[in-house]
């Protein structure tokens, strides 16, 4: 069938930040180099719409569509992709106004007869076409200590024991693939780039509720201030956007309750 695809094209941007995880300075430089102007916060990405027409099967993934466009019509079209089946998290974009993975959305899912619109994620700096700068996103990830902090005084020589029930307590948040669909669907982030965002909360939850972890309080501290969990307005955008079906709003609610319980 013939489909029409409208892609938000953004010419390559100067000053795309470097992404060196571990070198904290790079994230700062990226922030410091950009003045906080009103214009920068407009909700629409810069650039222009480009319309393509092509043949596609209803069962084609949107990623197949993008790859066919790049391969057959326009090699300058730029987007990220890797695994192609929703496990690597590279190709989260806005499809018909909703955050989704291009490789988990089929042409037939989008309703017949109307143009498919593809845009970069909102709330992260656009670098080129559908590619956004992931560095602010990863800075939020790092802020919640996203790694197991166990009691090292008693490390056993075999595995630490954990019951299936204890494992089930946090299993849902281990599914996160860091695709950024949730965080960039959050209206709080759109106006407040300092907001910790749902992804970091999901990853805090993953360790806070892990029976082997002892650093819940430190993560609570990172989630306590004006940009933390209390800023969540429960709009459920994140839950709807998550391609891994993590009930994110519920997860944030669990964190809030745990933090209150701890405060009392």
């Amino acid at each position: 069938m013939e489909i029409t695809v409208k892609v938000r094209r953004v010419p390559e941007q100067e000053g795309a930040s470097r992404s060196v995880v571990g070198a904290e300075s790079s994230g700062e430089m990226a922030g410091a180099a950009q003045p906080r102007t009103g214009k920068a916060r407009t909700s629409t990405a810069p650039g222009y719409w480009q319309t393509y027409h092509m043949e596609a099967k209803p069962t084609d993934r949107i990623l197949d569509v993008l790859m066919a466009l790049k391969s057959e019509q326009d090699g300058t079209l730029t987007f990220r992709r890797s695994c192609g089946h929703g496990i690597c998290g590279s190709d989260a974009i806005r499809i018909n106004g909703k955050n989704r993975l291009a490789c988990k959305t089929l042409v037939k899912d989008l309703g017949p007869g109307r143009a498919i619109t593809l845009e970069p994620l909102k709330g992260l700096p656009v670098v080129k076409d559908l590619v956004v700068d992931m560095e602010p996103f990863l800075a939020a990830y790092r802020s919640v200590l996203p790694y197991l902090i166990a009691d090292t005084s008693t490390t056993p020589t075999t595995e630490r024991l954990q019951s299936p029930q204890e494992h089930a307590r946090f299993e849902k948040t281990t599914k996160c693939i860091l695709c950024a669909a949730c965080t960039t669907s959050c209206p709080v982030l759109w106006t407040n780039p300092d907001y910790t965002g749902p992804m970091a909360m999901v990853n805090a939850h993953r360790f806070v509720f892990d029976s082997r972890d002892v650093a819940a309080e430190e993560r609570f501290a990172a989630l306590s201030d004006g940009e933390g969990v209390w800023r969540c307005r429960t709009t459920f955008n994140c839950t709807e956007a998550c391609p891994r079906d993590i009930p994110i709003t519920e997860v944030i609610g669990e964190l809030k309750r745990a933090m209150i319980a701890q405060a009392l």
């Binding site: 790694y147 166990a150 490390t155 595995e159 019951s163 299936p164 204890e166 281990t174 082997r212």
Partner: peptide
């Protein structure tokens, strides 16, 4: 030990 959340047996292994 690094934190990998393996599925567990009833006795926690």
């Amino acid at each position: 030990h690094m934190g990998l959340p393996f599925n567990r047996t009833p006795d926690g292994r």
